[in-house]
Design a protein around this nucleic acid. Structure first.
Length: 496
RNA sequence: GGUAACGUGGCCGAGUGGCUAGGCUCAGCUCUGCAAAAGCUGCUACAGCGGUUCGAAUCCGCUCGUUACCUCCA
């Protein structure tokens, strides 16, 4: 089996074989949400993407430390330097403490993530809890000559940095181009260059969120928290830094600059991984465009754009059916199709559970075994090729066809070796449940009751009491269960 | 304006030089009391034009179209 994981590295613009810096340990940092609003479909895509990577790395037996932050300070509403703090703004409107806003949306975020079966990170640091580390990093950058203080604020000196370093190496920007295209924004009078960004901002009297620092009372710049916290928990250089494509510039570019300019002197991460955006009617979904769909709207169907509610697993499957570096277009049709595909995959789990390897009469068919084993390998091939979950799912469907054929007796289980049979079952279960992170959404402990109903159904069927048969079918259908009359007996499946 | 990316069949969405993507939809068949489920079969593709090549959806050029980033965003 091809067991080399290849990842596309934004920093080198190539797919590279993943090799940890200090195997078997892997450090992964993903930019978390700014908790000033409900999580939306775009958040789901980012965190599902890195959840699969996290799960897969663990499956590959790496000891992973996954850090995903909560941004609760420093993220400003407008142009990087003069805007209002996003959280403070909501707090003011709702007459709440900023930390109440933070706590509320952090809780909501966790709820949504749990519904999507996204594993919690190993460490979830908050920016406001790491002011000291951020101040320390600023002091290093100042001491190294890549920052300057003005009126209680500290700015990163991009031109000075760019003399010996390459500001723009991640996003492919050229500093001259950036300079010629910079917009005039307020507050630039303090900055020597429009490209400079804030490391520390002096807090105006009405600014509520403030901390003491060597430069007076203020608050840290947005880009700094990720550099400071990733260094604290993962070291100066770690393996994977992830986030949405929209964070590549300026956020991640600034992170690299900060880490290079501090005593870390590194690009932070060896592999920079970016997921693409969700679009709606071909246009990017985003806060600034106001066309985003929150997860709770999606789960409740409570929005004009939505024809119906979609379950968390439908959403997860929808996301996984595209490659993470492609844009993914939202539509009701696509979600509905995802629902059916997801259900089909779930029914496969149940079929596998029911199948048993026969005790005797084994007559292995070499060609068939080979064919089926190849199908199981294909499933991993997609994953290893830059986490192509779309290909993995396609391969799983190919495998599922064979599983269903075996179940129906169109293919004979006795023609498989024990090893092939076990490999099929293990591959399917592991990929669907553990790595893709899909799970059954219905039933649970009602399975026994269902068995009872099915036994009544069988009796009625044998007595040719078709009225009763149809009635049972109709009732179960209301519960999203369809009855299957097989030659070998009676079974059920989720309605697709 | 600068810099990138993309354009695949009714819809979504993989695929980067020759080998079936896959899902959904639609039609037919098998099975069935009738269905459903499942299996099998079929259907309409690679924006356009030109080039490289024995051979291109895949490489190159041009044209058209769409989008993203350059300002907060996953």
């Amino acid at each position: 089996m091809q067991q080399n994981l290849n990842l596309y590295n934004t920093l080198t613009r190539k797919k590279e074989v993943f090799e940890p810096l200090h195997a078997p340990f892997v450090g992964m940092y993903v930019c978390g949400p700014t908790v000033y609003g409900e999580a939306h479909l775009g958040h789901a895509r980012a965190y599902v993407t890195f959840d699969v990577l996290y799960r897969y790395l663990k499956y590959l037996k790496y000891k992973v430390r996954y850090v995903r932050n909560i941004t609760d300070v420093g993220h400003l509403v407008n142009d990087a330097d003069e805007g209002e703090d996003k959280i403070a703004k909501i707090a003011k409107i709702q007459h709440l403490e900023p930390m109440e806003v933070v706590q509320h949306f952090t809780n909501r975020f966790h709820e949504d993530m749990a519904l999507l079966n996204i594993l919690p990170p190993d460490i979830e640091p908050r920016a406001s809890g790491h002011i000291l580390e951020q101040i320390e990093m600023i002091q290093e950058i100042l001491a190294n000559g890549f920052a300057y203080e003005v009126n209680g604020s500290v700015y990163f000196d991009v031109p000075a940095y760019n003399k010996d370093h390459n500001y723009g190496k991640l996003s492919g920007r050229i500093i001259e181009d950036l300079l010629s295209n910079t917009r005039e924004t307020e507050g630039q009078h303090e900055k020597r260059s429009p490209l400079d960004f804030a490391l520390w901002k002096n807090a105006s009297p009405e600014h509520i969120m403030r901390w003491p620092s060597p430069w007076g009372n203020g608050f840290p710049g947005w880009h700094l928290e990720c550099s400071a916290m990733s260094r604290k928990y993962l070291g100066q250089t770690f393996d994977i830094h992830g986030g949405g494509l929209d964070l590549m510039f300026p956020h991640h570019e600034c992170e690299i600059a900060q880490s290079q300019a501090s005593n870390s002197k590194s690009d932070e991460a060896k592999y920079w991984v970016h997921n693409n955006m969700i679009t709606i009617n071909g246009q990017k979904m985003g806060k600034s465009l106001g066309n985003f769909i929150t997860l709770s709207e999606l789960f409740s169907g409570n929005k004009e754009l939505l024809e119906q509610a979609y379950t968390p697993m439908t959403v997860r499957f929808f996301i996984l059916q595209a490659h993470y570096r492609s844009t993914l277009d939202f539509s009701n049709e696509a979600l509905q199709a995802a629902r059916k595909g997801y259900t089909k995959l779930m029914n496969g789990l149940r079929v596998l559970e029911k199948m048993q390897y026969p005790e005797e009469g084994i007559t292995p068919d070499e060609k068939l075994n080979e064919e089926l084993l190849k199908l199981t390998e294909d499933c991993f091939r997609g994953l290893n090729d830059d986490m192509n979950t779309a290909r993995t799912i396609a391969s799983l469907f190919n495998l599922l066809k064979k599983i269903n054929s075996l179940y129906l007796g169109q293919l004979q289980i006795s023609h498989l070796t024990r090893g092939t049979f076990d490999t099929i079952r293990e591959t399917y279960n592991t990929l669907v449940l553990d790595i893709l992170g899909l799970k059954e959404e219905k039933l649970g402990d009602q399975a026994e009751m269902l068995e009872l109903i099915l036994s009544f159904y069988k009796e009625a069927k044998e007595a040719k009491a078709y009225d009763k048969v149809d009635a049972i079918r109709a009732d179960l259908k209301k519960q999203g269960i369809v009855i299957k009359d097989l030659k070998t007996g009676i079974d059920w499946a989720y309605e697709e």
